Simulated assay, not measured.
Amino acid sequence: MAIRRAKQKAQVIEKLSQVAPPGETFIACVHTETGPSPWLNALFDEIPLVGLVVAFTRKFYFLTLTNTSVVVNTASRWTNRPGEVVAVFPRSAFPVSKIKRARVWSSIYLQFPGEKFPRRLNIHRYWRNEFDQLLTAVPNAPIPGQASGSGTYAQQ
């Protein structure tokens, strides 16, 4: 199981290199998880079985920024190994909204193809540098550090 960020990124790049077009450059890779705020886990764990149900409903993804696109692929719940590619978006059309950069758990809402509503993706501070690099692909996103007092970058 890959625990270190560098090893996880290397595994994602290795996996994506097999299907990437020639000349594709990998810039940043961010690990995310779906669901409500991870801060609520402490509350959910106090209610019998609810914490377990919430934990098993979470999905894990890697968002990888390349020179031409943003690639979304699954991540294994148990090993963090990268899985199948579920979406590829051109950098200029990365469908995110409600970008919130917080001290520990940041979040964005990503509109997956074929889904009616955007899905909340939580990003831990551990991935902050890569998250900031990923935000360069978001049209009209402010530069990190210029957020308003609410911690929100952009509402699209």
Rank of each mutant, 00 (worst) to 15 (best):
A2N: 06
A2K: 00
A2P: 05
R5Q: 15
K7H: 08
Q8S: 03
A10N: 12
Q11I: 00
K15Q: 14
L16V: 02
Q18W: 00
P22V: 07
E24R: 12
E24K: 11
E24G: 02
T25I: 06
F26K: 04
F26L: 10
A28R: 07
C29D: 12
P36N: 06
P38Q: 00
P38T: 06
W39K: 11
L40N: 11
L40W: 08
F44M: 09
D45C: 13
I47H: 05
G51W: 03
G51L: 05
G51R: 02
V53H: 03
V54I: 12
V54M: 15
V54K: 15
V54D: 10
V54T: 02
R58P: 00
Y61P: 08
T64K: 06
T66R: 03
T68H: 13
V70Q: 11
V71N: 08
V72P: 01
N73W: 00
A75H: 04
A75D: 04
S76M: 02
S76G: 11
T79H: 09
E84V: 14
E84R: 05
E84T: 15
V86N: 07
A87D: 15
R91L: 14
I99E: 11
A102L: 10
R103C: 09
R103L: 13
R103P: 09
S106A: 03
S106I: 01
I108W: 03
Y109A: 12
Y109S: 14
Y109D: 13
Q111E: 09
Q111V: 03
F112A: 02
F112Y: 04
P113T: 07
P113I: 06
G114F: 06
F117R: 14
F117Q: 14
P118W: 00
P118H: 01
P118D: 03
N122R: 04
I123R: 01
H124R: 05
Y126F: 04
Y126I: 09
W127R: 07
N129G: 07
F131D: 01
Q133T: 14
Q133P: 08
L134F: 04
L134R: 00
L134G: 02
A137L: 05
A137T: 10
V138T: 10
P139W: 02
P139I: 01
P139G: 11
N140Q: 08
A141M: 04
P142N: 12
P142W: 00
I143F: 07
I143K: 15
P144H: 02
G145L: 08
G145H: 09
Q146P: 06
Q146Y: 03
Q146D: 12
S148Y: 07
G149E: 13
S150Q: 02
G151I: 01
G151Y: 00
G151D: 03
Y153T: 00
Q155R: 10
